[in-house]
């Protein structure tokens, strides 16, 4: 049995857990813990990912795809490198409605690029939110090269998630063919 791994990363509350939950065939093995009511994050989200989320897609009898979601909070960033090891590619989730997280998203993207120069795509999540920045604006603010795929995304929508994963796989294929 062969397993491959893809990592879903991004700032706190960018929608990583929801993304994996939408596509995983098993109930996501989420390590989310309820936030204590007096923390700042509690206002944003009921629970946060402590170590990682874990989802699975069985391709066939011999191949399984694992999706790992990184913890968004910086105090758990020691886990990032461990999760990045051996990944096929990664997805950077950005909450399009929270510009205060854009710089963090860029830093996370650069950090993951430094761990492993594997293919990646950026998902402009929460495109259904009224305050969402458009993907073309996000491309400029995140200073993404034109060849980097920046995809509109709604993490709670399975088709949208599937499309992001497919685009990442096409990118991986393109890079394999180029090399």
């Amino acid at each position: 049995m062969q397993t491959v791994k893809m990592v879903v990363t991004g700032p706190f509350s960018s929608g990583k857990t929801e993304f994996i939950r939408s596509i995983s065939e098993i109930q996501v093995v989420s390590t989310e813990k309820s936030l204590s009511k007096d923390t700042a994050e509690a206002a944003q989200k009921e629970a946060t990912t402590v170590a990682m989320d874990f989802g699975r897609i069985t391709v066939d009898d011999e191949l399984t795809l694992f999706l790992f979601g990184t913890p968004g909070q910086r105090r758990f960033d020691f886990m990032w490198e461990i999760l990045a090891e051996g990944m096929l590619g990664f997805i950077v989730m950005v909450d399009s409605s929270k510009p205060e997280t854009f710089r963090e998203a860029k830093t996370i993207l650069e950090t993951f690029r430094a761990y492993a120069p594997t293919p990646y795509v950026v998902a402009a999540n929460k495109q259904d939110h009224p305050d969402a920045w458009k993907p073309e604006d996000l491309r400029i603010v995140l200073r993404l090269d034109p060849e980097v795929k920046l995809l509109p995304c709604i993490a709670k929508d399975r088709d949208s998630v599937r499309q992001v994963l497919l685009e990442l796989l096409y990118t991986i294929l393109e890079e394999m063919e180029t090399n």
């Binding site: 062969q2 491959v4 897609i57 391709v59 066939d60 191949l63 795809l65 490198e81 990045a84 090891e85 051996g86 990944m87 096929l88 761990y115 492993a116 120069p117 594997t118 497919l166 796989l169 096409y170 991986i172 294929l173 394999m176």
Partner: peptide
């Protein structure tokens, strides 16, 4: 960390799935 090169067959299988 050095990257792990994937196999094309694997990627195509996941796309089909």
């Amino acid at each position: 960390k050095p990257p792990t090169p994937p196999e094309k067959r694997v990627v195509l299988s996941i796309i089909e799935k």
